[in-house]
Simulated assay, not measured.
Amino acid sequence: MKNLLFFFLLCSYQVCAQADTTRSVHKEALKPIESDLTPSYGRYGQGVKIQYVYDGLDVRHAKDLGQYIYASGDPNAIHEFERYMGSRHAGGWLIAGGVLTSAVGLGVALANDHSGEASKGPYYAVATVMPNGTVCAGYCNSVPDRTNPTAVKAGVTTLFSGLLVAAIGAWMLRPGQHLRRSVQYYNRSLKQQGILWQLTPYSSGSNSGVGLAGRF
Rank of each mutant, 00 (worst) to 15 (best):
I69M: 06
Y124V: 00
W93H: 12
E80R: 14
D58I: 01
Q51D: 06
G66L: 01
Q67P: 03
P131D: 09
G138F: 12
I95K: 06
G121S: 07
V99H: 01
Y84M: 09
M130W: 05
T134Q: 14
S102F: 07
I95S: 07
R146Y: 13
L65Y: 12
D74E: 13
L100M: 13
Y139P: 01
N132C: 01
Y68R: 03
T147C: 09
G56M: 08
T101R: 10
M130L: 14
A118F: 09
V126D: 08
L110S: 10
E80M: 13
Y123L: 04
Y52D: 02
A151K: 15
A96G: 03
E117P: 00
A109T: 07
M130S: 04
H89A: 13
L57D: 13
Y52G: 02
G121A: 05
L65M: 11
K63R: 13
I95R: 04
A96H: 06
D113W: 09
A125R: 11
G116M: 11
A90S: 13
I95D: 04
L94V: 00
D58E: 14
M130T: 05
P122Q: 11
A103H: 04
A127L: 04
V59F: 11
V135E: 09
G86I: 01
P122T: 03
P75V: 03
A71L: 10
S142I: 02
H114N: 11
M85F: 00
Y84P: 02
Q67E: 15
L94I: 00
N112S: 15
G107Y: 06
N148E: 09
G86R: 08
E82T: 01
Q51S: 11
Y123G: 06
G133R: 05
H114W: 11
G66S: 12
P131L: 05
H89Y: 12
L110W: 11
V126P: 00
V152G: 07
H79I: 00
Y70M: 10
A151P: 03
H114M: 11
T147A: 09
Y124G: 03
T150L: 12
V104H: 09
H114Q: 10
A103G: 14
G155N: 04
V129L: 13
L110P: 00
V108Q: 09
P144Y: 12
G105E: 03
V104S: 02
K63Q: 13
A125H: 08
D64A: 09
G98D: 02
V129W: 02
E80G: 01
E80V: 00
I95L: 02
A90R: 14
L65N: 10
G98M: 00
A125L: 13
Y70R: 13
A118L: 02
D74S: 11
A111I: 01
G155K: 00
Y84C: 05
S102I: 01
Y70G: 03
A71Y: 12
S87N: 15
Y52I: 05
Y139I: 00
P122F: 08
K120P: 04
E82C: 01
G92C: 08
P144I: 04
D113Y: 07
N76H: 06
R88K: 14
A125V: 05
L100E: 10
V104Y: 14
E117T: 02
M130F: 04
D58R: 06
S115K: 12
L57T: 10
L94P: 02
D58V: 08
C140G: 07
Q51F: 09
D55T: 05
G105V: 07
W93K: 10
S72W: 08
V135I: 15
A137E: 14
A137H: 14
V129R: 15
A71E: 08
Y70A: 06
C140W: 02
